[in-house]
Amino acid sequence: MVNETKAASRDTRVDLLGIELENPIIPASGTFGYGKEFSELYDINILGTFSFKGTTLEPRFGNPTPRIAETPNGMINAVGLQNPGVIAVRDKELPDMKKFFHKPVMANISGFSVEDYAKTVEILSGQDQIGWFEVNISCPNVHGGGMAFGTDPQMAKKVTEAVKKVADKPVIMKLSPNVTDIVAIARACEEGGADGISLTNTLLGMRIDLKTKKPVIANKMGGFSGSAIFPVALRMVYQVYEAVKIPIVGMGGVSSAKDAIEMMMAGATAVGVGAANLTDPWVSKKIVEELPEVMEKYGISSLKEIIGAAH
């Protein structure tokens, strides 16, 4: 019982760009919808926040199926940013969300041109339910957009500047790991005025079906995620932490409280949980609940103190 008392006194709070999170756990965009499915399973207000499904200016059906393939310790998806469009998100999803989520939510948005990004953020500005914009310049599953902006420092900077002009909330740029120099992209975003960085999105991957001799996924390639990518994501968070001054939301393969703490030691202020939500719908809740115990085990009294501790 002594241990429980000690664990309960552990401070899991972090500050993410002026908003205090009860804990650093943030289900990642694309694995948590607009929160509804999970709110039916547990009270999602126990989370730090969550990042809602990548939203674009126009509604999108996304890619043809199959969109999913399995890998050792992970999966590949090529959903292709299926979403109802920003107007429906503002007028329907956000009001619906009010009924079950009472914290500031992270608004994940994506686009196909610099103007797209700016317009989408502009439409969502003035919504008091939104705490941050997470700007996805890293989706590997859409042609002529998404990742194209996250693989070129100049384009990344342009999108950041355009979004910053219209955003009424802090802007977090979500980076792609599919680059030769992640640090250059992160620095370009910081120069463009980004308030924070989140990384990583999925790694570009593929699987081939031995029977059909064809790619498993209709889009041929897709975004590789799951615990298999954790060391890669961790390494990139570590590198970016050394290069920029703005806070980082670290994600990629996190599936336990230990992973979350490791990600924070690499330099993350908050931690995204992605693919793990799909195989264990209660995993984010479990991570939140396990944090104090793991802190106790490793002698951590406050999570704030371990951000970047590995440097």
């Binding site: 694309g30 694995t31 948590f32 919808g33 499915e37 999970f38 499904k53 059906f61 996304g62 199926t65 199959p66 969109r67 999913i68 393939a69 999966m75 998806n77 959903v79 299926q82 498993v216 693919a275 939500n277 799909l278 195989t279 719908p281």
Partner: peptide, 22 residues
């Protein structure tokens, strides 16, 4: 259909319907 989650979270198994919805 190939599914990621099986409970509506990942949009891996979406199907276009006759009325244009998914």
């Amino acid at each position: 259909e190939r599914m990621g989650c099986g409970f509506g979270a990942c949009m891996g198994c979406s199907m276009k319907m006759a009325d244009g919805s998914y």
